[in-house]
Design a protein around this nucleic acid. Structure first.
Lengths: 152, 152
DNA sequence: CGTGTGCTTGATATCAGTCAATGATTGTGG
DNA sequence: CCACAATCATTGACTGATATCAAGCACACG
């Protein structure tokens, strides 16, 4: 977050995913639970046996972060939202429909947009028949290929 | 890069810094040398002795990437450029003046802006007396505190 | 029911992008 | 050594995508 309240969501984590490793003793980020959640903590200095796994996680996190920099730095609102929906769909098993566990504000802060813009893009996608909004938090992807075409 | 040529520079690396680790066999990024450069390659599977060091580097890279997400997602052009100049200054030893090894296009693609916007912000900073442009690639920071105040 | 929160939609503003012209610097060949 | 071309940077005029401001809607909850 910035001092004046502007917020950036760095990533969303689904069940079973690991997060929160930081080098410095003073942490720069915080996490919020969107749904009922329980966590397991790991200790870095524990035993060296877990280190190789940790390296993979760190590298994966860095990759995701760097890819997200491209999204936020260079893509339009439409491209960001389309890519986000496909990512969420894939990460929940690629089913036809899936739930968004987070609010519009969280999505906006993740994509570097405002809630209004996110809402408008959703509306446009629905109007052009690419998605359906079964409920406010449940999305159904109708035209996956077309949606992919919007991601640049 | 995106298929249509839009480019995002993920980070700049100065002498002595390590870059290029990716998990997947198919790499997503590439590097370009801005100045005369020589590199040393490290092999991941080499020996486990280097692993703890690597973990630190990966975590550091992830931290930097995530902080950059905040910059690109939520800061104005002025804030981005001011922060960039301070970062470059610090990383080159915090001297009064320092060289920018990269072109305006590289800076723009790093900050998620266009060359024109970068140029205009430079002009504005110079006009308000916060920096001097000794040459096109050499910046002198006159009012460091004021510059810091612009970063939000 | 009323209230509150989150979402959508519309009207307008603004920051940064685009397009275009001009300047500065560097390198090349005559 | 100079003219020329090429590249990079600056500056201006205008446009446009997204933000901001504001109103209305819908669902959940007491």
């Amino acid at each position: 977050m910035l001092s004046d309240g502007r917020r950036q969501v760095v990533d969303f984590y689904l069940a079973g995913e690991t997060f929160g490793f930081e080098v410095s003793r003073t942490h720069s980020f915080f996490a919020e639970a969107m749904v009922a959640t329980s966590t397991r903590t790991h200790c870095l200095a524990d035993n060296t046996g877990t280190q190789p796994e940790l390296l993979g996680l760190a590298l994966h996190g860095m990759l995701r972060a760097q890819e997200h920099i491209l999204v936020i730095g260079r893509q339009t609102a439409m491209e960001r939202v389309a890519g986000f929906l496909l990512d969420m769909s894939d990460r929940q098993g690629g089913l036809k429909h899936f739930d968004l566990p987070m609010s519009r504000l969280d999505i906006a802060d993740y994509l570097g947009l405002t809630i209004e813009t996110v809402s408008r893009v959703f509306a446009k996608l629905r109007a052009s028949g690419l998605i359906k909004l079964r409920s406010i938090r449940c999305v159904e992807i109708i035209e996956k290929t077309a949606l992919r075409g919007l991601c640049a």
